[in-house]
């Protein structure tokens, strides 16, 4: 690995060996998103209203709660991979890129954990 031009620095290293996997998981989670987000949109349409009572008792049921947890996992994973591509495209300084990707991981992991906790709380009856 030289320290000349950008191409010179990476020549001979081969690929990073993670692009294809990332690409494939983006597709797998996209398929999950299609099924689960259409379920959520259909639920919004088919529920008689979107009041607290209606929505919270609906989401507390075993099947909707499971679907919602799966939706959170699929969408957050997909969004994390998608935003990583955005960062890799536009943030070019190695240190900044590392920092932003670290933040992205914390935000998506924390967000997904919070979302799942909320569904579990609804389903197991901890909410007021």
């Amino acid at each position: 690995m030289g320290n000349g031009t950008s191409i010179g620095k990476v020549r001979g290293l081969g690929s990073a060996h993670e692009g294809a996997h990332h690409w494939l998981v983006q597709r797998f989670t996209a398929i999950g998103n299609v099924v689960l987000s259409i379920w959520l949109m259909a639920s919004f349409i088919l529920l008689p209203d979107l009041s607290y009572e209606t929505v919270s008792s609906y989401l507390a049921g075993p099947i909707p709660a499971t679907a919602m947890v799966l939706l959170i996992i699929s969408v957050f994973w997909h969004a994390r991979l998608g935003l990583q591509v955005l960062v890799e495209d536009y943030v070019h300084t190695a240190g900044n890129k590392f920092g932003v990707l670290a933040l992205l991981n914390l935000a998506t992991l924390g967000g997904a954990a919070f979302g799942i906790f909320c569904v579990v709380r609804l389903a197991l009856g901890g909410a007021a």
Binding site: E53, G111, F114, C118, V119
Partner: peptide
Amino acid sequence: LGILLWWLGALASGPE
């Protein structure tokens, strides 16, 4: 996703 979490958080916190 921010609004999704706000919605779920509100649901889990009660009617108010």
